[in-house]
Amino acid sequence: MHPKNLALAACAALPFLAATQPAQADADRRAVAMAVIKKDFEPRGQAGLDRLAEDGLQTLCNRTGNNPPAYVAQRLEADQMAGIRYPSDGKLLGDWKQGEQIAQSGRGFTWTDNPGLPVGGNCYNCHQIAPKEQSFGTVGPSLYQFGKLRGNGPDIQKYVYGKIFNAKAFNLCSEMPRFGHVGALNEQQIRHLVALLLDPESPVNK
């Protein structure tokens, strides 16, 4: 090869190497980490080893540091969106009082939880919601006055229902669980939560 061509080839290869070398090391370590996780966990209570396996979305978020390329994210978000099941009767607004109770409960899915009991919404763990509850988390944004600021028409109802059912349909690597998608919350429970955020009578909007 001519020295000039060689230099060109090297130049072309450089950015490629710079980009892939650390990524490759990370990928190797991730593979080891996953093997370690696989060998070093044991089932307990309702938490079986099946929970260690990634689904496609988790795989993508894990591989990209929760920052997937937009074109992939959009397609997968569309897949998640397509899986959202809205109530067949079209009624999305339930009872905000029951919604408040569901929002308060952080129960469910841990190895110490009784699998026979209903799963809570865990909402206050991460969000400010009704003003009376001062013990709220800040992992997610404040939802106080959610309906007051955004209205409570059919579009926003559909958005809130969908977001609770599967937050990943709107933001692929969102930190928020997919409550409907994984069967944690049923149709009726999600309706109540929609009411908590949107009903004008809910303390959230007072």
Partner: peptide
């Protein structure tokens, strides 16, 4: 950093 399980945590 490994996300998995029912809540993707």
């Amino acid at each position: 950093a490994y996300r998995a399980g029912p809540y993707d945590f």
